[in-house]
Amino acid sequence: MFTREESKEIRKQFWIFFGKRYPRKWLLYNTGVKDLNLKFDFDNDKAIVSIDSESRDEIDRIYYFDKILSLKNLLLDEVSQNITFESEYILESGKLISRAYIQLEGVNINNKNHWPQVFDFMFENMSKLELFYIEYQDFIKS
């Protein structure tokens, strides 16, 4: 078991090493749509690459998630057959969002032996998700 400070330092090291391994600027929050973000997440049992509709306004949140859902077959073909779509996904903070995501299970951020696998998973899937978003952003934004 790690202390809060040790866990914080491990997370910091992970993201530093990820950035060194794949030194590029990711799209992430720069989608051009408020509260529609591409995200990385890695915790004690899984790694996730996602596109999140996070508006506190349910109508906006669902509107953009429906846009993503309307592209479901293209997402499955162009990004991954393993995408999960959840219109109501609750974050650890308790916030309700809508999320389309690819998940890698059985990995732990505290286990540095898992890092290379997660680096590759995140890079491959986020690269595809970004290209997909860039290709269809006009439709998603309209």
Rank of each mutant, 00 (worst) to 15 (best):
V49R: 09
S50N: 13
S50M: 10
S50Q: 09
D52Q: 15
S53A: 15
R56E: 14
R56P: 01
D57T: 13
I59Q: 04
D60N: 12
D60Y: 11
D60V: 05
D60S: 10
D60E: 15
I62S: 01
I62L: 03
I62T: 04
Y63K: 09
Y64M: 03
F65Y: 04
F65G: 02
D66W: 02
D66V: 06
D66Q: 14
K67D: 10
K67Y: 03
K67T: 11
I68W: 00
I68S: 03
L69K: 15
L69T: 12
S70I: 05
K72G: 13
N73Y: 10
N73A: 12
L74H: 06
L74F: 05
L75K: 00
L76A: 03
D77P: 13
D77T: 11
D77F: 08
E78F: 09
E78C: 03
V79C: 04
S80P: 13
Q81Y: 10
N82V: 02
N82M: 06
I83M: 12
T84I: 15
T84Q: 11
T84A: 12
F85I: 08
F85H: 09
F85T: 08
E86T: 08
E86G: 06
S87P: 09
Y89V: 03
Y89G: 03
I90G: 02
I90M: 06
S93A: 13
G94F: 09
G94N: 08
G94R: 08
K95I: 01
L96P: 01
L96E: 03
L96Q: 05
L96R: 09
I97R: 02
I97C: 02
I97P: 01
I97T: 04
S98V: 06
S98K: 09
R99I: 00
Y101M: 10
Y101P: 05
I102Q: 06
I102D: 07
Q103W: 01
L104P: 10
E105G: 01
E105I: 02
G106D: 07
G106Y: 02
V107F: 01
V107S: 07
V107K: 06
V107E: 09
V107C: 11
V107Q: 08
N108R: 03
I109Q: 02
I109F: 08
I109Y: 06
I109K: 05
I109G: 00
I109N: 02
N110R: 07
N111D: 08
N111C: 04
K112W: 00
K112V: 00
K112N: 00
H114S: 07
W115F: 11
W115I: 11
W115V: 12
P116T: 12
P116M: 12
Q117M: 13
V118H: 11
V118L: 13
D120A: 14
D120R: 14
D120W: 11
F121G: 12
M122P: 08
M122H: 15
